[in-house]
């Protein structure tokens, strides 16, 4: 990673080297090998946020880093199959909308915005409604963070 050639400034789009799968066997192997684990850790961090440090944002960043490692190793073109960059921003908007929707459903049930104990899930005590409310909200956060970070990476890379 450390040796970047000074590239031609007129080349506005991405470097060809990142478009195709990487030549370096080490990068290829480590990145492709580690990426699934990072994704898994990301999911763990997200779901375990209620009991230990972690939560939506951290999980989201880890997931994004996992996808970005795939981008690095597979090259931009191939990794589109895993995560097409046309979708990223829209998916993150959907994540934020999910957050708002959770909040608004409480309003519809007659409470204040984001008041989880009024969520329309039957058969749960208010404390557990809050528990799941937080979880739902964190899903939204995770989706947004994951996809946005990938989107920012894509944009910075210029493809």
């Amino acid at each position: 990673m450390s040796e970047f050639p000074e590239h031609d400034p007129k080349d506005h789009c991405l470097d060809e080297s990142l478009k195709e799968p990487t030549d370096s066997l080490i990068v290829h192997a480590t990145a492709r090998g580690i990426a699934p684990f990072i994704l898994l850790i990301g999911l763990y961090v997200f779901f375990h946020g209620h009991y230990s440090p972690g939560g939506g944002f951290q999980g989201g960043v880890l997931l994004a880093v996992g996808f970005l490692l795939l981008r690095l190793s597979l090259g931009v073109r191939l990794s589109q199959i895993v995560m097409p960059h046309r979708l990223t921003l829209r998916a993150s908007a959907i994540g934020a909308l999910l957050f708002v929707a959770v909040g608004l459903s409480a309003v519809i049930m007659g409470g204040n915005f984001l008041d989880y104990h009024l969520l329309p899930i039957p058969g749960l005590a208010p404390e557990y409604l809050r528990y799941f409310g937080i979880l739902l909200v964190e899903v939204g956060v995770t989706v947004t963070v994951t996809f946005t970070l990938v989107a920012i990476y894509d944009e910075l890379l210029g493809c």
């Binding site: 921003l89 908007a93 909308l97 708002v100 608004l104």
Partner: peptide, 23 residues
């Protein structure tokens, strides 16, 4: 009575929807 939260939400939600509907 709900106006305080609906005013910013109207803007924010329409911003997200604009992104989605712009497709």
């Amino acid at each position: 009575a709900e106006a305080p939260v609906f005013i910013p939400l109207a803007f924010l939600v329409s911003a997200m929807l604009a992104l989605l509907l712009g497709v």
